Amino acid sequence: MNRSIQIKALAGEPRMAIMRILADPQRHFAHQWSADPAQFGVCMTLIAEALGVAQPTASRHLELLRQAGFITVRKQQKWSYCKRNETAIQDFLAWLQQELSRDSGNTRKT
């Protein structure tokens, strides 16, 4: 996975908001009638409404999160449903922890 794409994906507040609301889809999207939000994912239209942005804007944010591997997108008829990819998220967090803990050997002593 391209880590720079993942870092870029998490660098925007709207994308972080998407990740937060998709963490508990049942709470935020229980009103979704077309499919169970926890099992199937959340309709992109409802995500746009939750963010208070136009659907094309939400789609751009969601596409970057998809490219980063943090969400999966499933198409059903004319709708697209998004769900967090918990495995990819945990992989990224483990990588980030390792990178932040790594001794580069170039640290300056004061």
Score class of each variant (00 low, 15 high):
11 A>F: 11
88 A>E: 11
51 L>Y: 05
42 V>C: 08
66 R>F: 03
77 Q>K: 15
87 T>L: 08
67 Q>F: 05
22 L>T: 04
52 G>L: 07
64 L>W: 01
32 Q>G: 07
86 E>S: 11
69 G>S: 05
11 A>T: 13
36 D>H: 09
63 E>C: 13
13 E>I: 05
24 D>V: 08
40 F>I: 05
40 F>D: 03
55 Q>G: 02
92 F>R: 04
80 S>H: 13
41 G>W: 01
49 E>V: 02
55 Q>F: 09
49 E>R: 12
91 D>Q: 15
39 Q>W: 00
61 H>A: 02
44 M>L: 05
82 C>Q: 00
16 M>Y: 01
42 V>T: 07
25 P>K: 07
40 F>R: 02
88 A>N: 11
58 A>P: 10
29 F>V: 03
18 I>T: 00
50 A>E: 12
62 L>G: 02
89 I>H: 06
17 A>R: 12
28 H>F: 12
66 R>T: 04
88 A>R: 06
26 Q>R: 14
85 N>I: 02
53 V>L: 10
49 E>Y: 05
20 R>L: 11
49 E>D: 13
51 L>R: 09
36 D>G: 02
34 S>L: 06
84 R>K: 12
18 I>V: 12
76 Q>I: 10
80 S>R: 15
21 I>K: 09
93 L>N: 15
23 A>T: 06
